[in-house]
């Protein structure tokens, strides 16, 4: 936790770290960081207490954002970030058991929320009232049945120590989520499952921060739905870039890094 941090600046530093991690490969999960940067900034900058709370990154593709954030708050050696995505690196592009700096990540979508529920249930059974479990989930995962099984369980068992940060970036492999499956109204769905839900502009770090505070204080499991875009905060990207898996050839990578370095300077 970094007190009094400019969360917007922190979000841009996450974008910059991710661009540098992806640049050597020419493509990768940059869009996931562009969309979730303010969510991770608010979580890591203000609320998550390493060593005390549990952190779960349900969609393993987002692990890059957790690495960047962990390096930013000093719980992951930033030299390791340079190995991201290379052969035999512990930092595989999609989360694995070896992924450092998180309590759980996964590649098969929606299993992370069940894992987070398991952590929260264990803490509740042990009477550890001062431990929180944070789970980053994505809107595409709402298409998986298991996610709703987990949501039902958490609602029924009143796991107030569980907070979900939902990156609603309207992006999945085949295109916008909204064109493939209607998942709205998202907040009402969670509320009907016994959760508190806070629907905010996910690129407004202060709004995310405030919603996270309410979610933690809630006496139910709670979700902060951040409305985001996979191409936010990087003007260098060409029109129509595929935010799910961004192509970043050398020249574009240089331009992206220069743009972000100028902004965080």
């Amino acid at each position: 936790m970094i007190p009094n941090t400019d969360l917007g600046g922190l979000a841009d530093r996450l974008r910059l770290r991710a661009a540098k991690m992806i640049a050597p490969h020419g493509f990768g999960y940059l869009g996931q960081v562009l969309s979730s940067a303010e969510l991770f900034a608010a979580l890591y900058g203000r609320h998550y207490r390493p060593g005390q709370d549990a952190i779960v990154v349900s969609p393993g593709h987002y692990i890059i954002a957790a690495y960047a954030a962990a390096a930013e708050i000093g719980v992951l050696d930033e030299k390791l970030l340079e190995t991201y995505g290379f052969d035999d690196s512990d930092l595989e592009a999609i989360g694995t058991e070896r992924s450092p700096a998180v309590d759980l990540t996964g590649g098969s979508l929606s299993q992370g929320l069940s894992g987070a529920v398991g952590f929260a249930l264990s803490d509740k059974m042990a009477g550890k009232d001062d431990v929180l479990t944070f789970a980053l989930c994505s809107d595409g995962e709402l298409e998986e049945g298991q996610l709703w099984e987990a949501a039902l369980f958490a609602g029924h068992n009143k796991l107030r120590n569980l907070v979900v940060l939902l990156d609603a970036n309207d992006s999945q492999v085949d295109g916008p989520v909204s064109e493939i499956t209607t998942i709205e109204p998202i907040a009402a769905k969670w509320e009907s499952f016994g959760w508190d839900a806070y629907d905010v502009d996910g690129h407004d770090a202060a709004a995310v921060d405030e919603a996270l505070g309410k979610a933690i204080a809630s006496d139910k499991p709670a979700v902060v739905i951040g409305r985001t875009s996979t191409v936010h905060g990087l003007k260098a990207l060409p029109e129509g870039a595929d935010g799910h898996f961004i192509k970043l050839p050398r020249e574009l990578a240089d331009a992206a890094i220069a743009e972000l370095e100028a902004r965080v300077a």
Binding site: S114, G145, E149, F153
Partner: peptide, 19 residues
């Protein structure tokens, strides 16, 4: 009681084992 929700039951059990 996990209810009739085997997918969640198994993933949750994994996390309980981690603890």
């Amino acid at each position: 009681h996990a209810g009739m929700a085997e997918a969640n039951m198994v993933s949750m059990a994994g996390a309980l084992a981690r603890r």
